[in-house]
Amino acid sequence: MTTDTASAPPQPRSGAERSPLRKLFSGSAGRSIGLVVALLVICVAGAVSGGDRFVDFGNVITILSQASIIGVVAIGMTFVITAGGIDLSVGSVLGLTTIVGSLTAVQAVAADSSWLVMVLLALLVGLGVGLVNGVVIAYGNVVAFMATLAMLVGARGLAELVGERRTFVVSDPGFKAFFRGDLFGVPVLVIMFALVAIGGWFLLNRTTFGRRTVAIGGNREAARLAGVNVKRHLVAVYALAGLTAGIAGVMMMARTNSGTSTHGLLYELDAIAMVVIGGTLLIGGRGTIMGTVLGVLIFSTLTNVFTLNNLSTSVQAVVKGVIIVVAVLLQQRFAKRT
């Protein structure tokens, strides 16, 4: 130690030393400010180009409805990525849950008892697949990317097998009445997304589960040495992602009135993109539900603006790609600074 530091008391570089503005922007709320600005810019662009068609309560509800299903998947994905993992299987799992939830036999049972059977089965399948993912990754020491890639292929195939490549029409009146309804003009699906988001925020920020998820993603060895059961926790995290895929499956059955193996195609990629744009670090250790919600809204608003302006889906895809790259570049700059 040199003598000049010996006289100074230990000075943590805490918030007090930073400029207030910098502190604001480096806080978790502050990181979302950029996203809010981006969302506002897109909204202004929408209002200018789409006029009344964009600034319409009905259109806002459309945007939120489109956001709700992928949004629920993205909330689950936020936990997986925060823990330093990845789940490529969520789209396939979503498809599988819609099949299981709407099978003719299941609907027959539901008709005799309650439509809750359909919901419960879909959720259980999602949870079960997530558990398998988690066990293979945590206890089998298989890289998450490969384990869930295998599940992406396998679950889709299983959905085709179980459903015999058919599309099942959801006919249960109770199911439809509940999930296709609305509350004060807000569709139930949007309310479900909101509830999952709020629940996810609470779980990540206010519970031991969330705290340990961040710790494992930030420094797995440190978490282990601190006495966290890392493997068991990871199983729970992947199970959670599977469960959210199941919830999204139920929502998909409601929105499309059908169950088919192609539901949720490529949802995993959209969800990952939304999570990362939201500011959750892809290497783990830092996750934000607020950011993910904003990421989801940015994507769906953008899609809406493009559709109102009759831009082709190809153009949309290119722009989305550019946005993803720019978002990740910005994130890396941030990561370097800290």
């Binding site: 961040v214 930030g218 420094n219 440190a222 040495l225 250790g285 830092r286 800290t338």
Partner: peptide, 8 residues
């Protein structure tokens, strides 16, 4: 050095 998590 190992045992702290920077993000917390």
């Amino acid at each position: 050095e190992l045992d702290v998590v920077d993000g917390l």
